[in-house]
Simulated scan of single mutants.
Amino acid sequence: MKFVNVRNAVALALAAAFMFGATGCAGETERIESVQIPGVWTGAGGGRVEFGDDGRFELSGIPSDAVVFSFIDPPPKGEKVSGQGTWSVKRKGSIVGLIYDSTGSFAEGGEAGTLGVADGGDSPKLYFSTSSDREYGYEIHKSG
């Protein structure tokens, strides 16, 4: 159990460092409040993330190249990613941290990821950041 906790901490630290590199130099960072997160968020090509107000999420149809896999072999390019886990707002609302359960595309539990905040405010947008060369990766927006 201690190994998994260390692994989670390392993965989250790497993801946070990656997010800082991707958004830290882009000027003012957008922010989002925890109360804005629950609901269904959708992206291009049928990607969907449903965030519960209980801190759980379930995703499906997310392009495999939108998700950074740090400890397990990623699915083949072109496949869609699915899974579930827990979410929480981090870094004073500038990122949403994800911890994946061992379901769907995630064979091992404890894989960590982040979503950056592309837009806060009334029409929030989140994104899976996959490259420090691009400011935003695969975007999702709140439906309805």
Results as ranks from 00 to 15, higher is better:
121 G>Y: 01
86 T>L: 12
91 R>K: 14
117 V>Y: 00
102 S>P: 08
85 G>N: 05
113 G>Y: 04
124 P>H: 03
65 D>Q: 14
41 W>K: 08
112 A>T: 15
111 E>Y: 06
99 I>P: 12
119 D>F: 13
73 D>N: 15
97 G>S: 11
35 V>R: 15
76 P>Q: 09
53 D>K: 08
88 S>A: 15
90 K>I: 14
49 V>M: 05
84 Q>P: 05
105 S>N: 00
15 A>L: 12
89 V>F: 01
32 I>Y: 00
30 E>R: 13
73 D>I: 15
95 I>T: 13
94 S>P: 09
121 G>F: 02
123 S>H: 12
80 K>S: 07
96 V>D: 00
116 G>F: 02
46 G>Q: 10
93 G>M: 02
52 G>D: 10
71 F>P: 01
25 C>H: 14
114 T>F: 15
15 A>K: 11
61 G>T: 00
52 G>V: 07
115 L>A: 00
120 G>K: 03
94 S>G: 00
62 I>Y: 03
59 L>G: 14
97 G>F: 03
81 V>A: 02
53 D>R: 07
47 G>W: 02
53 D>T: 09
81 V>M: 03
88 S>G: 11
118 A>Y: 01
83 G>R: 01
64 S>I: 07
124 P>K: 05
69 F>C: 06
56 R>T: 07
93 G>P: 01
29 T>L: 10
72 I>C: 13
116 G>H: 05
72 I>V: 13
94 S>C: 07
65 D>E: 13
57 F>Y: 04
63 P>A: 03
123 S>K: 11
76 P>K: 03
112 A>I: 03
50 E>P: 06
100 Y>D: 09
44 A>G: 08
87 W>S: 08
23 T>Y: 10
69 F>G: 00
44 A>R: 10
121 G>S: 00
79 E>N: 15
68 V>A: 13
16 A>F: 11
55 G>L: 14
64 S>A: 08
81 V>L: 06
115 L>W: 04
123 S>G: 12
77 K>E: 14
103 T>I: 02
84 Q>W: 08
39 G>E: 04
20 F>H: 14
103 T>H: 02
54 D>Q: 01
15 A>H: 13
36 Q>H: 05
50 E>Y: 07
94 S>L: 06
44 A>V: 11
114 T>K: 08
40 V>D: 11
115 L>D: 01
82 S>W: 08
76 P>G: 11
106 F>C: 03
37 I>E: 00
92 K>F: 08
25 C>Y: 14
18 F>L: 13
103 T>L: 08
112 A>L: 12
84 Q>I: 06
43 G>R: 07
65 D>K: 10
35 V>W: 10
102 S>K: 04
42 T>Y: 09
95 I>K: 09
36 Q>Y: 07
117 V>N: 03
31 R>F: 05
74 P>Q: 01
38 P>Q: 05
56 R>H: 13
115 L>Y: 02
81 V>S: 02
30 E>F: 08
72 I>S: 10
104 G>D: 01
127 Y>Q: 07
92 K>I: 14
36 Q>N: 09
61 G>C: 00
77 K>P: 11
50 E>Q: 11
43 G>V: 05
17 A>Q: 15
45 G>F: 14
32 I>S: 01
84 Q>V: 10
43 G>K: 05
96 V>Y: 06
50 E>L: 12
50 E>H: 11
61 G>H: 02
108 E>R: 04
112 A>S: 15
65 D>S: 12
45 G>A: 06
49 V>N: 01
118 A>G: 03
100 Y>K: 06
68 V>M: 07
108 E>F: 06
